[in-house]
Amino acid sequence: MYDNRMRLQFMSLSQNESFARAAAGAFLTQLNPTLDQLTDVRTAISEAVTNAVIHGYQNGPGLITLCATIEGGRCTFAVRDSGVGIEDVSRARQPFFTTRPELERSGMGFTVMETFMDEVVVRSSAGGGTTVIMKKIIKGEAKK
């Protein structure tokens, strides 16, 4: 059973990247995170939402859903799009991998999410959209 829950839906527009990370950060503050934990979450959410805008919807129209659930001292975020999906998730998660080098993408998006969050699960299939689920432990046994 969760203690608190929220769900936001917004258009796939780059200006909503800052909106999404600000909303996620604001929701997290009820767990009294440190400044570093707050930055970790804001950065990871920014990565997931940016991926949805650029890769999921390829800068075209679409809706992105951000959900967050608090259970005890942990917060779980889900960023979902109904875009093109990822054909090979394990390849996409490798550092420096990008399908869009012409856009000067660093290929570090998933690496940042994995480094800054305690758990990252990616559910995706070609044509079936992508859901990135990320857990951050604020109190209790956090990642060393």
Partner: peptide, 13 residues
């Protein structure tokens, strides 16, 4: 005040 991997990409470029 904030930078993510997209910002890193710009600097890298």
């Amino acid at each position: 005040t904030f930078m993510d991997s997209a910002g890193l990409g710009v600097i890298l470029g």
